[in-house]
């Protein structure tokens, strides 16, 4: 099915802090965001073109194709065997 594509949005503690008009919290917002960006669990998306990232996607797609191919060969084999 068609996928709805939306621009990537990230929560912005900076903007929230700016609304409060507090420069200190603005600065801490930057720091907080920087920390989150360094945390792979919060920001797990690797850099575009990362070889390991691309390899993971290729392995996944290949696994699906191989699995489906095995299923088709199995079904055709059983059918042709006349069991």
């Amino acid at each position: 099915m068609g996928a709805w594509r939306r621009p990537c949005r990230r929560r912005a503690p900076v903007a929230q802090s700016a609304e409060a008009g507090d420069l200190n919290s603005l600065e801490s917002g930057f720091e907080s965001q920087r920390e989150h960006l360094d945390d792979p669990l919060v920001n797990p998306l690797p850099i575009r073109g990362d070889r390991r990232y691309l390899r993971g996607m290729k392995v996944l797609s290949t696994s699906w194709i191989v699995g489906i191919a095995v299923g088709l060969v199995y079904m055709l084999g059983i059918g042709l065997s006349g069991r």
Partner: peptide, 12 residues
């Protein structure tokens, strides 16, 4: 291919 498999197995 899966339609063919259906046909062959279905015939059996």
């Amino acid at each position: 291919l899966s339609w063919l498999a259906q046909g062959i197995a279905g015939q059996t």
